[in-house]
């Protein structure tokens, strides 16, 4: 089949998943929802607004017509107008989502690094002090609610040590750069606004750290057990026996072979971080997609909530697709075909 076939297969699968996401949210918001019109319009809407909403979302049509238009608008990124922000939902998402992606990308890098090396380090020192230290650390960070992690970081790094700003996207005294990509750092660089760039960078440290701390536990845990399994393998014994040294055997041979389950897990971590941003951005008043979701929640803004949910799900599917492709690139057994895949 080869790698191209594999990737095309995954892409088709991903596309059907997106359709599925549309169908599932449709089922939830149009079919099983008690009184869809009132939910879409919001609790304080007047009769005429409700009528307008019924017209707009075609709620008086048969379900298959509704579904057709719903899928059409999902695929064309049209999620209606927010009754609270009075703006198209897609515009809102285009503004808020990149800010979150920015912290998620940094957090993913930190998490992957901490998780992979932490897990490998713990496995290399199995049942000795470093192993216990790593395990206690990830147990605690994994068991803490995300808001507690965020609060503790804020308390110590911002309020006690005054190293970092405690909240917001950037110093409010600075004017933000024109929105080009939506990514604050990138936009600031394009505009050569280095003062804003530096301020935004400092402001995203705490949310990034919080996201990394709540998620690195899973990766560490899986990496550790995956490493232990690799280190029981004959190829690891071969590596040791050859005399290349324990360090190289562990951190080159065993580590590479242990990465495969972790790659799939990174996609899951992405999903987990986006969900975590809902809480973390609330604590840091960081106006990303999580903040948008909570605002929608607090202000009875259904179109924004549903639109964000669908877009987030699409991004998660995309992340899974990327992970599948990476997986194929790392593992020659898939890349070149012929091998068994478990």
């Amino acid at each position: 089949m080869g790698v191209i076939g594999y990737i095309i297969g995954r892409a088709i699968r991903s596309f059907f998943l997106v359709l599925g996401v549309a169908a599932l949210t449709f089922l939830l918001t149009h079919v099983v929802a008690p009184n869809p019109a009132y939910i879409w319009a919001g609790p304080h809407a007047s009769k005429s607004v409700v009528q307008a909403v019924i017209q707009e979302y075609k709620l008086n049509q048969p379900y298959y017509v509704q579904l057709f238009y719903y899928i059409l608008s999902t695929l064309s990124f049209n999620y209606g107008v927010s009754p609270y922000f009075k703006e198209p939902v897609s515009t809102l998402i285009a503004t808020y989502l990149p800010r979150t992606l920015e912290i998620v990308v940094f957090a993913m890098v930190i998490t992957a690094f901490l998780g992979i090396y932490g897990g490998a380090f713990a496995a290399a020192h199995k049942d000795r002090a470093p192993d216990y230290a790593v395990r206690v650390f990830y147990l605690v960070s994994w068991s803490m609610p995300p808001f507690l992690v965020a609060l503790l970081l804020q308390l110590f790094l911002a309020y006690e040590l005054k190293l970092l700003p405690p909240n917001l996207l950037a110093d409010p005294a600075l004017t933000p750069p024109k929105e080009i990509t939506g990514f604050l750092l990138v936009d600031a660089l394009i505009e050569h606004d280095y003062a804003f760039f530096y301020s935004a960078l400092r402001h995203l440290v705490l949310p990034t750290l919080s996201l990394a701390l709540i998620s690195f536990g899973i990766i560490t845990r899986i990496m550790r057990s995956s490493m232990l399994q690799s280190m029981r393998g004959d190829f690891y014994r071969t590596a040791i026996m050859k005399g290349i040294g324990r360090r190289r055997a562990i951190y080159v041979h065993a580590l590479k072979n242990s990465l495969i389950p972790v790659i799939t897990l990174l996609a899951l971590t992405f999903s987990f971080m986006i969900a975590g941003s809902v809480v973390i951005e609330e604590v840091f008043s960081y106006q990303g997609i999580g903040y948008l979701v909570t605002q929608a929640l607090y202000n009875y803004d259904y179109p924004t909530l549903v639109g964000s949910t669908v877009v987030i799900a699409i991004f998660v599917i995309l992340a899974n697709f990327v992970a599948d492709v990476m997986y194929a690139l790392v593992d020659p057994r898939i890349r070149l075909g012929g091998g068994e895949t478990e």
Binding site: L17, G20, V21, S271, F272, I274, A275, G276, V278, V293, L297, L305, S308, T309, I312, A313, V316, I317, N320
Partner: peptide
Amino acid sequence: AFPALILAL
């Protein structure tokens, strides 16, 4: 495919 929290919300 959904982050659990978002879907639950």
